[in-house]
Nucleic acid binder design. Structure first.
Lengths: 200, 200
DNA sequence: TTGATAACTGACGGGTCCGTCAACCATCGG
DNA sequence: CCGATGGTTGACGGACCCGTCAGTTATCAA
């Protein structure tokens, strides 16, 4: 057995680079050579770890998802109050810091790519399912504590997630009528209308 | 002056074909030759009307938008009651019939393309502005009639549009947990929570 | 009929880029 | 020191496709 395996970290480097390039150039314009350069290696090495461009992108999408979850795992433990937990959770999805923006970009590329790719649709299904599960469970906690209105938590979660997706997209597009701050305001408004005894 | 101008209708044919191909294959995989074949003409003719692929796509996006507006223009006159008007408007965006689905596909491709293209961002800004203006004005009508809660109409419109965008995307992705019917249910729920005196 | 122009065609040049491959390097066990 | 194996490299073949262009057809005015 020669040379201690560097496979894990090299894969990581390449996937991270791939996400960066996708975020900057888009899937359509991504070249293997770009990813290689960004990862500080050669195109041959990229192909050594990922047979095809498709395989690379699929792995990059999965990696992007895994990291998104990781970044939020602790967050859910930090707040005992479901209202604050929900707020913090939603807040973590606002496309503010560069890392979150990058993740959103990759995410958006996945969506459009998945429109014509069954495998990626399956991946989206898992991701979306996980996200919805987390959101619905927070809502349920809040309702059990008598803090949120008594609507179907799954419906509420779907509505919130859909809204966040749609708004984030507009923010990412640099819309002047939907800036980060305005998105934050809309979310605040909607969240506070979820809590009991606040019809205005 | 030779041969009566066929420019207008030929452009229309090509743009329509372009939207169909984009919807089926995605922007990334769209070939000029595909559009030509779909339009029943040659690649040379496509280039006769549109200098570059980029110009073709930009025009196709604009055309898609114009048609979307046309399809809904009458709809807003049909219902005197703002509640029904809002419901019909939202309903017209549900990705049910093939034409609406196709329009959504094109729309989604525009989004992702626009992430890296200032010109397309500007186009998105116009479209989104128009949509938001329509939606907000319905909400305002409803509030004036004392039918809707007294929240900022623009915030409500943004929230609704964001939600519709996000949900439609999941439906288009063939999500098992976000089907057309479930999207319809979520929209119903949210819309009815807008009307006064309905906290459940 | 003839010339002019709009509309159209499809072959092809040229650029791009994926994936392959032959060669190379580094590190280990024996 | 040697062979084996994991890891790496970059050149290149070949496929793909945009945009050009020389040539063709259709329609009109004179």
């Amino acid at each position: 057995m020669p040379r201690p395996s560097v496979e894990a970290e090299r894969r990581e480097q390449i996937l991270s680079a791939a996400c960066e390039v996708v975020s900057e150039l888009g899937f359509k314009s991504l070249r293997i050579a770009d990813v290689a350069r960004r990862a500080g290696t050669s195109s041959g090495t990229v192909h050594y770890y990922f047979d095809t461009k498709t395989a690379l992108m699929r792995a990059a999408f999965e990696w992007n998802f895994a990291r998104s979850l990781d970044r939020r795992r602790d967050l859910l433990q930090e707040h005992a109050d479901p209202r604050q937990r929900l707020r913090a959770f939603v807040d973590s999805y606002l496309p503010g810091d560069p890392e979150t923006v990058r993740a959103w970009h990759v995410w958006a590329e996945l969506w459009v790519e998945a429109l014509h790719d069954r495998d990626l649709q399956e991946l989206n299904e898992q991701v979306y399912g996980e996200w919805r599960r987390l959101m619905a469970s927070i809502v349920r906690d809040g309702q059990d504590a008598g803090l949120f209105r008594d609507e179907d938590p799954v419906v509420v979660a779907n509505a919130l997630i859909g809204m966040i997706d749609g708004l984030a997209l507009q923010v990412l597009l640099g819309s002047r009528s939907m800036t980060l701050e305005r998105m934050r305001a809309v979310c605040e408004q909607v969240l506070s209308s979820l809590t009991v005894g606040s019809s205005a």
